[in-house]
């Protein structure tokens, strides 16, 4: 679908919802579908039930935390450690949600609408709103956001189920390739941000500590990696040269 001209902005909540629906169909849905195919395959290949994968996509819908959940449930980590690790890896949702609020909140917006919308904040829907939300009148942005994110969420559920069943139907090499897709995807998405020193250091410390601490304690290794590696990187970056100097790779 290629919009030939800039259409006039929506004037009713319904029109904003429909605009969101139409704009989510395309690359955003395709990228998410591939990721959740991989997640569904991971669930199947880990010998976990389909309902766990679907419920995770339904209640969590933040893939790094979902992958962490499956990886940790597979080795039988304690529920407390799972909560800590998933909580830490998904803590990035806090700044994301905070930055979206001024865009979404208009005079008269009901709080429950915002709390419901916050469940649908994912990297894809966040970028979508940050990039395109400005064309939609302020009071209609919540409708636009629901229109944009609900198809993404629905597609994620479908792709989780398809990936799960695909894992048993295709050769092992293909389903393992799907499982490997998400670690690679996360790795490269993180590499996009490396101009920021603090994030570069976090990536390096995490990469070194992750396997090492896992050998020390398969249970506590991941939360410890996040806390120790992240805090060290944060402290070092604060002491270092002026941060965020643009133009350095």
């Amino acid at each position: 679908m290629t919009p030939s001209q800039t259409p006039p902005g929506p004037t009713t909540p319904r029109a904003a919802l429909v605009l969101g629906l139409r704009e989510s169909i395309g690359l955003p849905v395709a990228v998410l579908a591939a990721s959740f195919l991989g997640f569904g395959s991971l669930v199947a290949k880990t010998d976990l039930p389909l309902w766990l994968g679907l419920a995770s996509t339904l209640t969590g819908w933040a893939l790094p935390g979902q992958v962490a959940l499956v990886e940790m449930a597979a080795v039988g980590s304690s529920v407390l450690v799972i909560a800590l690790a998933v909580g830490m890896v998904n803590a990035r949702l806090l700044p994301m949600t905070i930055t979206l609020m001024p865009l979404l909140r208009a005079p008269g917006t009901r709080p429950w609408g915002l709390y419901a919308a916050s469940h649908l904040i994912a990297v894809t829907s966040w970028i979508g709103l940050m990039q395109r939300g400005h064309r939609v009148p302020h009071a209609l942005r919540l409708s636009y956001f629901f229109g944009f994110s609900l198809p993404l969420w629905a597609m994620s559920l479908v792709a989780t189920a398809v990936g799960f069943h695909l894992a048993g139907a295709v050769p092992s090499a293909v389903s393992l390739g799907l499982v490997f897709l998400n670690p690679l995807y996360f790795l490269l998405v993180m590499c996009v941000d490396l101009r920021r020193r603090a994030l570069l250091l976090s990536l390096m410390f995490g990469a070194v500590l992750g396997p090492l601490l896992h050998l020390l304690s398969p249970d506590w290794g991941l939360p410890a990696t996040g806390l120790v590696g992240g805090t060290l990187a944060w402290l070092l970056a604060r002491r270092g040269p002026p941060r965020d100097a643009p133009g350095h790779g």
């Binding site: 890896v89 996360f186 993180m190 991941l222 990696t225």
Partner: peptide, 14 residues
């Protein structure tokens, strides 16, 4: 952000 990044990097490398 740093804690989330370090944990995710650790998970990926693991």
């Amino acid at each position: 952000g740093c804690v989330a990044y370090a944990l995710l990097a650790g998970l990926i490398l693991r």
